[in-house]
C-alpha cells in the first residue's frame, strides 16, 4: 500500500475514528491525569498517587466496587436469561406475536428515572403492592420494601429495563437459525433443553455476548436506579463518584477510572465466559 493510499484511508476514517479517538481519548486522558492529581480545578496540579491510596483505603470505595460488579453481572445474566425463552417463543410468527413483541419492548421507551420513581410508588410503605398484600390477607401490616439491602429492587429494575434490549438482539439471532438444523436435532433425539444448549445458544452466541456486554456496562455504571431504589448502606460506583466529587475532583476521577477499567475488564470476562461455557470445554 502506497503512502498516498494510506493517507486516503486515514482521511476517510477520520470523521468516524478520529472523532472517537479524540473525544473519548481526551476524556479518558483527563480522567486518568486527574486521578493522579493533575488538572486541579482548585489549586496547583501535582502528580501524586495519594488519591488512589486514599480511595483504596476506604471501605466505601471497595464496597462500591464489589456492589457495582454484583449489579452489573446479575443484571446482564438475568436480562439475557429472561429474554431467551421469549426470543425462542417469538421465533416463528404467530397471530398476535407482533403485538406481544411490541409490548415486551415497551420498557425501552420508559426513561430510567421515571421507571425508578414509578417502582418506588408501587412498593412504598402505603403503596399499591403493600395494599394488595394486606387486602388479600397475606400481610397483617405494611412492610418496608423500599431501598432493600439486597438490592433486589435495583436488579428488578435493571432486568425490566434491559430485558427488551437483550430480546431485540436475541430474537434476530434465534430467527436466523434454520428450521432444518433444529428438526435434525429433534430427529436425533435431542430434547428441548438439549436443543437450546447445543444448537440455539451456540448459534446465537455473538448476540448473547453483545447483550451481556452492553447490559453489563450500563448496569455497572448505574446511577439513577441506585440513588432512588438502591440500598442506603452502600453506593454504586457512579453514585460514589458524584458523592466524592463534592469534596475532591481527584478522588472522583479515581472512581471514574475504576469504573472504566471494570467496564472494560468485566465485558471481556463476560464475553469469554459465555464462549467457554457454550463452545468451550464446559459445553460437554
Amino acid at each position: 500500500m502506497t503512502w498516498r493510499r494510506c493517507a486516503t484511508v486515514l482521511l476517510l476514517l477520520m470523521p468516524g475514528l478520529g472523532l472517537i479517538v479524540s473525544l473519548i481519548g481526551m476524556v479518558v486522558y483527563v480522567a486518568i491525569a486527574q486521578s493522579f492529581g493533575l488538572y486541579n480545578l482548585n489549586g496547583d496540579s501535582v502528580f501524586t498517587v495519594a488519591h488512589w491510596a486514599e480511595m483504596l483505603d476506604r471501605k466505601l470505595y471497595t464496597r462500591a466496587v464489589t456492589y457495582s460488579i454484583y449489579i452489573g453481572v446479575w443484571s446482564a445474566i438475568l436480562a439475557v436469561a429472561f429474554a431467551y425463552p421469549l426470543a425462542i417463543w417469538l421465533r416463528k410468527p404467530f397471530r398476535g406475536s407482533i403485538i406481544i413483541g411490541a409490548i415486551l419492548k415497551a420498557p425501552l421507551l420508559v426513561q430510567g428515572l421515571v421507571a425508578a420513581f414509578l417502582f418506588i410508588n408501587v412498593i412504598s410503605y402505603h403503596g399499591i403492592f403493600n395494599q394488595l398484600m394486606q387486602a388479600i390477607g397475606l400481610w397483617d401490616e405494611p412492610r418496608r420494601l423500599q431501598n432493600d439491602r439486597g438490592a433486589i429492587g435495583v436488579l428488578f429494575l435493571q432486568t425490566w429495563k434491559n430485558m427488551p434490549f437483550a430480546l431485540l438482539l436475541l430474537t434476530g439471532a434465534v430467527q436466523a437459525i434454520p428450521d432444518d438444523v433444529l428438526d435434525a436435532a429433534r430427529d436425533m433425539g435431542a430434547g428441548t433443553f438439549a436443543r437450546f444448549r447445543k444448537i440455539i445458544a451456540p448459534l446465537s452466541l455473538s448476540a448473547m455476548q453483545a447483550a451481556l456486554v452492553i447490559i453489563f456496562i450500563g448496569a455497572v455504571a448505574d446511577f439513577s436506579f441506585q440513588v432512588i431504589a438502591g440500598p442506603t448502606n452502600r453506593q454504586s460506583l457512579a453514585q460514589l463518584m458524584v458523592f466524592v466529587r463534592q469534596t475532591s475532583w481527584h478522588e472522583a476521577a479515581v472512581v471514574g477510572v475504576t469504573l472504566m477499567v471494570i467496564a472494560l475488564a468485566g465485558s471481556l470476562l463476560l464475553a469469554i465466559a459465555a464462549r467457554l461455557i457454550l463452545k468451550g470445554p464446559f459445553s460437554r
Binding site: 471501605k59 466505601l60 439491602r149 442506603t232 448502606n233 452502600r234
Partner: peptide
C-alpha cells in the same frame, strides 16, 4: 462525615 459513613452506615 467520612468516618461516620465508614463506621456506621456501611456497618448496618
Amino acid at each position: 462525615e467520612k468516618a461516620f459513613i465508614e463506621q456506621v452506615i456501611l456497618e448496618r
